[in-house]
Write a protein that binds this DNA or RNA. Structure first.
Lengths: 146, 146
DNA sequence: CCAAATTAGTCAGAGACTCTGACCACTGTC
DNA sequence: GACAGTGGTCAGAGTCTCTGACTAATTTGG
């Protein structure tokens, strides 16, 4: 609610985050991956290589499992994920990345690499390293599930 | 879509941002300011001390002006903002903070200060300063409207 | 072993958010 | 003073998210 020269750290964190997200989204759309929404992407991003349970996705994305289920439905219809029974627990099902998601990964990774390179160029190697180090340490007390 | 030890910088930025936002939201709710939503808060946060036009709020919050108008309607009904004619342009109206928003500000500010103190304690003064400096410089190339 | 508590997920319904498209009122320019 | 541009609203639809209630499978305690 203020706009003095010293922004609060939260907004300072958010600004580059959103810039990166926008870039990724635009690049994916340009590459033909324009059939999913930001909300779906936030869930998709958290599907692990060996599959992930719905409840776990919901926790990490900080939504209810109903919401996560709804989003996974869309992603499944669009061919980005599959649902398979979890061999270790017959109540559960594992969400796995499908072909279309694996095709999108390199595109997203390339943009992330490109943006990080731009940032490093602007900040300088030293400050970029300091930024990542500080954020990594900060994660210890701000990441509720890790 | 990956979970190696080295997270991409975007996620690293997002984790503490969300942690801070959650803290602010919880504190405001506990203080009785529980009658607004996150989406409304993101708009409210951007109302300047001398009032701000709807279009400007929309740009900064990265939503359409229709969406911003919808959110301002809610905030107005809940007593957080007022709409007044802009003396310099009869098409425009200035959104201004109302009493209830001014009452909430110190609560939010206190939480931000508290969280920043915790972060500084965990990171150390030096790394905290480096973090803020890097983010401030990064803003130069990631903040589209500033 | 079995009853109770817990956990994984779904279904139903409602509210909140966001968009596109169409539109009106005012401003600034030539 | 027409006209392109800007500030804002109205209408309608699609998306996201939640609460509450429920089923099925697992885990726990006696």
């Amino acid at each position: 609610m203020a706009a003095e020269s010293e922004l609060n750290t939260g907004l300072l964190l958010f600004i580059p985050y959103r810039a990166l997200e926008n870039r990724i989204f635009a690049a994916l759309a340009e590459a033909g991956f324009d059939d999913f929404t930001p909300a779906q992407a936030r869930v998709l991003q958290r599907v692990g290589p060996d599959g992930t349970r719905l409840t776990e996705l919901a926790e990490q994305a900080q939504v209810t499992k109903q919401t996560a289920g709804f989003l996974v439905d869309q992603l499944e219809k669009a061919g980005y994920v599959t649902r398979e029974p979890d061999p270790t627990d017959r109540r559960a099902r594992l969400i796995r990345l499908a072909e279309r998601a694996r095709a999108a990964q390199p595109v997203a990774a390339a943009v992330v690499a490109e943006v990080e390179r731009e940032w490093e160029e602007h900040l300088g190697k030293r400050r970029m390293r300091q930024l990542r180090e500080a954020l990594t340490v900060l994660r210890e007390i701000t990441d509720p599930w890790a």
